[in-house]
Write a protein that binds this DNA or RNA. Structure first.
Lengths: 253, 253
DNA sequence: CGGGGCGTTGATGAGCTTCAATGCACGTGG
DNA sequence: CCACGTGCATTGAAGCTCATCAACGCCCCG
């Protein structure tokens, strides 16, 4: 199999123009991700309440502690969400991509930071319009609750990972998660994040992540043609490892 | 200061009768915690849709993976919520007490288990009535979203704790959390859980928890008259430690 | 008095982090 | 075109934190 390395070089500060891609096949000229969240009949009205925005890679567009006066729906690109400590230690709580909500949590101040991992496009809603939206789209309330519920279930799984799993189990869990996200049965993953991001997501260091990647490759579980591209070779074994069903011992060389 | 050890011996299987305590001062004959969640005017109607239940200490009343056909509002006692792995490793994701929701997550199956830590009293709602409740109490939807949001914020803080904090920082965070929960300025905590529970909550072992408790006592941060009773002596120092503001080195003897 | 549950303490070691060096890809400028 | 610098990843060696194993103490109860 032959991969071209995935190019993720930061774009310049020039904002990306909306509507030039990511369109919905059902309702052209609208982002797929918006269609996934709201009913098609609601779209014309909704259109008045959102603002299309674009950020370059590396832009921190939500800062922990700042007033939570807005929220986003990502339409294109990837985002890391994180909490950090005064001395710089960082925990990435999740990655967001097209169709994901960011900042829906009904709180006065943001409890996390968000940074564009790649050039980003999103729809921005102001919280002041949020109450209006809620009244006019009653289904939205239920929808938000479902999103929050899904988040909570994921958060619980991640607490188990961070509190109780070994380095191998963590990385296996991560790869399985990415595999399911990709929806391709071929097992070809294009990771949008660096080793540093993965380490901060799994509560490890870059060195441990790197060593474990290498160990997996030696064991024939994965193949790494390029650092950002991983081919899953044995998803069954990885999945078993992720759940701690087997005690896979690390073998050097 | 003189503490009587907090007695937590399991009660017999005989169900606790409702209405014999935990009453609300505003609307007698109703549990405080229910009043905290619903409007007083809603209570008579609501009363028809809930079922009062009681469990002895140690009862696992929600099992991970089972159909999520009900949810609870705790009215008295304490609960541990946890996820576990096939080999027995366990991560406690939270403790619940009076006025807390358990199982509101709108999911087909429970994603966690819940076990009574002390004799428990709760109001049980069936999910089938939940949709009815939602229609008749429109404010409920918003309320549930607020609860879920608060949970999510807590979950993010806990991911930072589990992924990035040291043992001392974790225990300090735990003590601070309990201190704020107690709402007593005196700093006298009655812990309803064992060292094992604390360890599984913080992603540590009982030995490390015990050693860190002892270290805190040696450093004059706390005093431990009885294992289940802790007197906070220096909340400022504990709080700074919890946030990683200071690098408190462990000193033996 | 004996036994069990829970907690504490000590000794040892595994697993991960830290520190350090090297490699690799890519972009830039002489 | 190639030397050089930078950012990211890999690999090795040493060290530290926390887990593991083990012994003991305390308290409560039959």
């Amino acid at each position: 199999m032959n991969f071209s390395p995935c190019k993720l070089k930061p774009e310049s500060e020039t904002p990306i123009l909306p509507h030039d891609s990511g369109e919905c096949t059902v309702c052209p000229a609208r982002e797929r991700s918006i269609c996934a969240i709201f009913e098609p009949t609601q779209l014309p009205e909704l259109e008045k309440h959102l603002q299309r925005v674009a950020f370059p890679a590396g832009k921190v567009f939500i800062e922990e502690g700042r007033a939570a006066d807005r929220f986003y729906v990502v339409t294109q690109g990837h985002v890391r969400l994180f909490n950090s400590m005064p001395d710089g230690r960082r925990q990435i709580t999740g990655f967001a991509t097209a169709s994901d909500f960011i900042g829906l949590v009904s709180c006065k101040n943001f409890a996390f930071s968000a940074e564009a991992l790649t050039p980003l496009r999103a729809c921005q809603f102001s919280v002041s319009e949020m109450s209006f939206l809620r009244r006019h789209f009653p289904a939205l309330e239920k929808r938000l609750l479902e999103e929050a519920s899904r988040e909570l279930v994921r958060a619980q799984k991640r607490m188990l990972l961070l509190g109780r799993k070994t380095a191998s189990e963590r990385l296996a869990s991560f790869l399985r998660e990415r595999f399911h996200l990709s929806k391709s049965a071929l097992g070809h993953l294009a990771l949008p994040m660096t080793r540093m991001d993965i380490a901060d997501y799994l509560g490890l260091t870059i060195e441990t992540v790197s060593r474990t990647f290498s160990a997996f490759q030696r064991q024939g579980l994965i193949h790494i043609p390029h650092t950002r591209n991983v081919l899953i070779q044995d998803i069954e074994a990885l999945s078993a490892l992720a759940d701690g069903d087997i005690a896979l011992k690390r073998r050097h060389s």
